[in-house]
Amino acid sequence: MRLFFSGFRKLRRRPATFVTFGLLVGLLVLIVLAVGATANSTSTSDASGRAAARELLTFPGAYEILLSFIIGLGGLFAMIYGAAIAGSEWSWGTLKSAVTRGESRVRYMLLTFASIGLMIAIGIVLAFAVAVVAGVIGANLAGFSTSGLSDTSTLGSLPEHVLKGWIAVLEEASLGFAIATLARSQLAGIGAGIAFYFGESFASIFLPDVVKYMPFSVANAAVSTGSSNVGGGGGTIASLPPDQALLLVVVWLIGSLLVASLFTDRAEITG
């Protein structure tokens, strides 16, 4: 457990943690407040635009949309975050220090990822809380009712959706983690991860039946509730049923960690 808590303490002080979280929350708040402030302005003459604004800022439906935004865009950020953490262990040589102290390579990498998982869980909950506050402010700016805030059936289903969303984001983080481990570099891991993310979206145009099984697509499908997906890679293509997608998310998650662990265990640590 000391290694897990150590990993968490390291992440807590790491600039990448605040930058990633700040970017996600900043974008979210900016969009929600901008929508709220402009929902009734004369420039928003398009009826469908106003309807979309009403859908985003009217509770309880806003809960799902805001969560979907966090899971979608957060997935990309989580992948970058996972790549940054795993890559730095190689480029900074800190994995080397642990190994020379007799630490198990596999245990070190898995517990490092576990601490990422905890940090992501905290990040999702905090980002969701900020998003709801921003949503309320946005609704007030737009003059929409917030009476649905306390809708018990929606609030009751939120923990399950947040949990599924966390698993989906975790899978995307594990992908970045594995890629950066194979690349032994932060920058290469982040670059390759982003290329994979957008590559998957692009490939969905030509190979929808294949791409729907790919990691970012299954992550989106697993958290899909029928609301619009915002910011997710490959979100508009044919997708798997949520339960089947969730199973594949877990497979991708375990597979990524297995690859990262096996590679680390067998790697020759030099430099």
Partner: peptide, 22 residues
């Protein structure tokens, strides 16, 4: 070369390194 987390202090680096191994 000695390797550390650049964003942590010397004390924090030693404490976190101490969490690995013995």
């Amino acid at each position: 070369a000695p390797t550390f987390y650049p964003y942590l202090s010397a004390r924090a680096n030693l404490r976190e390194l101490a969490a690995s191994g013995a």
